[in-house]
């Protein structure tokens, strides 16, 4: 019943198993329930270095839950998540929090920037958390805002920016620590087509430049098309047939 077979990685097996070929992140048979509601029923996924994976599937299929488990926000009830050979799913809460701070970037649909802080301060926040001095952190933040094309708004509050600008600042915050993996849950869900395109193309460009792996959750095929590969989730399981590889 449960299909536990791992998804074939983009990188064909059989080649030299160098570091670049090994997945950065891999989940094996993870199970997660909210109380009595099963959300994930044995999911295995791998994300290669610099790979952009789109996770799609109908509403309520468990995409967000899968992402939160991969990012070490939620702890799966069974199965494990491995990041660069380290078991994330067994780590303590503070270890996972530190991992998310240093190696992962997370982007949500909206409402993640602190409304009282300026865009630059928001982007600098992860650096300040890891002890970088204010001046250096703000300088780095401004550079990242520039890479996402919103350096003009460094001193603006999120409430003074458009939805697309806010998302780009949020993407800058997710990338400021130069994470290995960027997670994005419906990053363009609240934006119109053009604003969404700007956000997505900038995320993809920056991720490619810095060889960051990206996991994008979306139910929009035009967003999934930014990915190298699609993983379809259905009823808490990977629908291997649906991604076109399994059939």
């Amino acid at each position: 019943m449960n299909r536990h077979a791992p998804i074939p990685s983009l990188h064909p097996a059989g080649g030299a198993t160098s570091d670049a070929d090994r997945p950065v992140l891999s989940a094996r048979s993870i199970v997660y329930s909210y109380g009595n509601t099963p959300a994930l029923r044995g999911v295995s996924v791998q994300v290669g270095a610099g790979e952009i994976v789109a996770i799609t599937g109908p509403s309520g299929s468990g995409k967000s839950t899968l992402m939160l488990c991969l990012a070490g926000v939620l702890q799966p009830d069974a199965g494990d998540v491995e990041f660069r050979g380290r078991l994330v799913s067994d780590a303590s809460e503070s270890e996972r929090s530190a991992l998310r701070r240093s190696d992962f970037g997370i982007l949500f649909q909206f409402g993640q920037l602190v409304p009282e802080l300026t865009a630059a301060e928001n982007v600098a926040l992860p650096l300040l958390l890891s002890g970088v001095k204010r001046k250096a952190a703000i300088t780095a933040a401004t550079t990242w805002l520039d890479r996402f094309g919103v350096a003009d708004h460094a001193a603006s509050r999120p409430t003074e920016m458009s939805g697309g600008q806010v998302q780009r600042a949020a993407a800058a915050r997710a990338m400021v620590t130069e994470p290995s993996v960027l997670f994005a849950d419906e990053p363009t869900g609240a934006l119109d087509a053009l604003a969404g395109e700007q956000v997505m193309s900038q995320i993809v460009r920056v991720a490619r430049e810095s060889a960051t792996s990206v996991v994008i959750i979306t139910h929009d095929a035009t967003v999934a098309a930014y990915g190298d590969r699609e993983v379809v989730v259905r009823d808490g399981m990977i629908d291997h047939a649906r991604d076109g590889i399994g059939s």
Partner: peptide
Amino acid sequence: RRTLAALVAGGTPRAV
């Protein structure tokens, strides 16, 4: 709570 939860998901310690 929405912003705070997003911050914590991004690795901001609750203690902060």
